[in-house]
């Protein structure tokens, strides 16, 4: 039983890992077909993973409603929003528009989801400005460098900034294309080396936390 519960999953990981690592180095139509099929398979399995996440959300709010905990009315709103969207979406066949006219599903997307999403992210502008006011004091040389870079980039992104400081546009582009790019590149190389090391550990069974806990 321990073979089925513990060793076989590790074996599956090792075989699939080595197979698809090797696939990259085989320039053959069969190899390409394997990659295309695997990508499709991943999308299908990912769909089932969504069921796990959604069920967890359903359960959490259902418990809140059943026990009538504080704010359970909002959970009802969440349920109503979700169920109405699903019903309307399935009715429209998952299409936002049909024959050039907007469906009810498209209406929900355009007049509910887009404004809600846009506003949620837009209010972050206020919180970022507030955080900047509190933390952007040039207490050290490094903080001063950060502050100056941020101000130049902000000025360079708007016409008013370029009008007030004509060079800010070019300097902003230089900071983003050269200085920022070099740092991103260094971080990317570091993260990539970590990813490769972790992938090797997973394939060879050193890292097993993805299998979950438990005795077996």
């Amino acid at each position: 039983m321990i073979f089925l519960r513990r060793r076989l999953p590790l074996l599956i990981t090792m075989i699939t890992g080595l197979l698809f690592a090797g696939q990259y180095y085989v320039p053959h139509p069969a190899s390409e077909w394997l990659l295309t099929s695997a990508t499709k398979w991943l999308q299908i399995i990912g769909g089932f993973a969504l069921v796990l996440g959604v069920t967890s959300l359903f359960h959490q709010h259902a418990v809140k409603i059943r026990r009538q905990e504080a704010g359970w009315g909002y959970s009802l709103v969440l349920y109503a929003g979700m169920l109405v969207t699903i019903a309307v979406g399935l009715w429209a066949g998952g299409k936002e528009s049909l024959d050039g006219s907007m469906t009810a599903f498209g209406w929900i997307y355009s007049y509910m989801m887009v404004p809600l999403q846009g506003t949620m992210f837009a209010i972050l502008a206020f919180f970022i400005a507030s955080a900047a006011y509190r933390s952007f004091r040039a207490r050290s040389r490094e903080a001063a460098v950060l502050l100056i870079a941020a101000v130049i980039v902000m000025m360079g992104r708007v016409p008013l900034g370029e009008y007030l400081i004509p060079l800010s546009g070019d300097v902003s582009q230089w900071i983003l294309n050269v200085l920022n790019a070099s740092v991103r590149r260094a971080i990317l190389i570091g993260v990539s080396l970590g990813t490769i090391a972790l992938s090797l550990k997973i394939i060879f069974g050193v890292e097993r936390s993805y299998l979950g806990g438990g005795k077996e």
Partner: peptide
Amino acid sequence: EHLYVGVSVGYTIVKAYDTV
């Protein structure tokens, strides 16, 4: 806020159903 979560999850479910 709760309506946003509900509508977003509903939208994701419909799209996942249609695609997958």
